[in-house]
Amino acid sequence: MEANPRVLGTTSIIIPLALPKGTKKLCELCEGEARLQCTECRVTFYCGAEHQQADWVGIHERICQLLVRIRRPTLTTCLEKVKMIEICRLVAQSKLSEGKHQEALPAAQFCLHCSIDVHGPRTVHIFPAYLLLAEVNMGLGNLPRVAELLSQAEWAVLKSPEHAVHHRLHRSLGRLHTVTGNLEAALFHFANDIYFASEEFGLDSTVTRGGYFLMADVYAKLGQIAIARSLYSEVARTWNCHLTKLFESHVQNPDILLEPCHDEAQRGEVNEMLQTMLDFGQNDSRKDIGRLHLVTHCLAMLWFLGGDSLKALGFGSTALQASQLIPNHDLTEPIQCLLQLVQTSD
């Protein structure tokens, strides 16, 4: 068998357990667990000498050196993969925000595979891919898979000191528990989400307020309407400030485009959030004119910035009516200014 080793190629023994994690080597012919490695090219593996020889005789002798260039990971393929991960992520996210969960699934899955290829299976870098896939599965209603993915993600970031990562993890976990009806757990995770977001982005950031918004929903489900109300008011106030700033900078320099992150998808999300708060206010037994004014003003500014003057006009006039009902505070001026702008731009 070993009488003519030069003709049949040389091999060295490999021990599968000694390989880096996640790099299981398979036999070239039978895809069984590999024990031998071709020493010529070092990229081809076999379960035993029999298959090695068969392959050598069959084709390997001819393509051994050619395989080296194809199979060995080089810097360029690595960069290609990183680029691919980014493309997959963007595609999956945009499909997700459009609500096309089924279509987003392949992109998210491929993103995870690529990430594992590039970074390895237990690193913090694959965390976004896990979350993305979990989100897609959440949209599809595949909750067991979401739970599995999130616990994988939790494991990956367990020791990471970055606040932002923990904030995203807890937000996703909170969402999962909200859907599964484990409201106490959801509160716990949203509380952590808000804490980490405050550490990372500050107390008054819109990111932190996202956690407030989700938490308010949980409190509303728990029947603690008073807490939900005050959380919603907080969210409305922050968004009002944020949008007012955007609006004012837009009015001063109309040529400068809005921040790139303020794209269609995000606007959709914000709109949905504000709309939810508006509905909550209308169904609430206790009418809160202050919040109604804030939310409708937000919506008016949002649609103005989004270029939909009809909706901006509608919400603007509601906000104006609401603001006129609030005594002692002159809140009408910014809204009137907005309405004027909408009318002149028509």
């Binding site: 952590n192 938490m215 959380l231 907080e234």
Partner: peptide, 16 residues
């Protein structure tokens, strides 16, 4: 973190 999370879990977001 524990104190903050407890406050939020009990709904005291202003105190937080």
């Amino acid at each position: 973190q524990n104190i903050c999370v407890e406050l939020l879990q009990q709904g005291f977001h202003r105190s937080f």
